[in-house]
Write a protein that binds this DNA or RNA. Sequence first.
DNA 1: GCGAATTCTTATCATTTGATAAGAAATTCC
DNA 2: GGAATTTCTTATCAAATGATAAGAATTCGC
Lengths: 208, 208
Amino acid sequence: MDRALMLPIFREKIKNLIDLNDDEWDVFIDFLKIKRIKKNDCFAEEGKTCREIGFIMKGAVRYCNIVKGKEITGYFSFENNFVTAIKSYLTEEPCLYNIKTLEDSYFVTISRKNMQAMLKIPLLSCKIERFGRLLSERFNILFEDRLKSFVIKTAEERYRDLLESGNDIVNRIPVQYIAQFIGITPVSLSRIRKKILTSTASSHKADS
Amino acid sequence: MDRALMLPIFREKIKNLIDLNDDEWDVFIDFLKIKRIKKNDCFAEEGKTCREIGFIMKGAVRYCNIVKGKEITGYFSFENNFVTAIKSYLTEEPCLYNIKTLEDSYFVTISRKNMQAMLKIPLLSCKIERFGRLLSERFNILFEDRLKSFVIKTAEERYRDLLESGNDIVNRIPVQYIAQFIGITPVSLSRIRKKILTSTASSHKADS
DNA sequence: GCGAATTCTTATCATTTGATAAGAAATTCC
DNA sequence: GGAATTTCTTATCAAATGATAAGAATTCGC
């Protein structure tokens, strides 16, 4: 997939966050970069400041690191979502986790430097300021939902939510990572999966 | 505490988010409201859209609701922090929880309507746009920290973090709410408290 | 396609947390 | 100040999850 093909698609997909006319767009795209990252490589790396925001054109990532010797997964993101280590990006502090691809992935990226440069271009500044706010707001909404799932739901409910989320997460992502995401061990997830399987199996039996 | 006393303090406290000269400030304050909310009353209410952002001048709040018959607490906020049901405020969807005061509290509030009105006043618009973005970014940082505590920490660690947080949460807030906040039952927190007490007691004994 | 490596499941036992009830401590209200 | 209410702690037992190990299934590399 090359740049010329990808950018018009990107333009369409983010129209609800930033809607530029042709002149503005021509200036805008000079500040964009296309990045291909191979499976299991990093978009952002623990210990380094994350200086860009990415939009997943194709692929998926997980937010992960190793804590007390154990690997954990804080979040997944898929096509058509923005990705960044938001606190590190905002504060320029080193990132406390990795953002790793789960598959070979393509991103459109905007660096913090370019974001700030665009804020100084009169033609764009107003729309970029708004874009930045909307992006930040969108992250807030994701965070609130994710936090809610920890505060009010059990591990089993979080897993069932994933099953029903529409993404075919369960087929695309290794079980161990899913377990980390919902906050339990793979062994414990295995038990939950079995429990769900046997309960649906028996209800099927009852139907037939 | 009255308005004339409170606003200059407020101005000083939010200087890092929005720094206005005297002319701008005089326009700005017409869009501010002082709110006093008695202990256990609501700043934002479940089922209603939350249409304002508050700054706690004095007091404390908890984000709470009842899920499956059980009361839960998602978050606490204290003096010098902004408060809002962020997803509801941003999307205008009904709020899914309450924000209740833990003590008699004073807020400086800005309504969504006033925020939008100020965005249309040329004198202020630029600084308000930035203020909105910084506020949103600040919420993101809080969310990332809070989420991290669920993803990588145990209940006991979350409790110890509270003890060391500087706020004297443990004295100001009923244990049952603290238990909800860290995601366990009051009974379970009681066990943890006892464990911490006896371990510090025995280490004291070893010292003397 | 086959062997090696990885991942997933199952089993067993330990630990943590939950549910419930009852008693102790603190608070509230006359 | 004392009775009533609420909150906190403790005890007991149940349920969920973790730790570890071993076997089954899958994936990977050649």
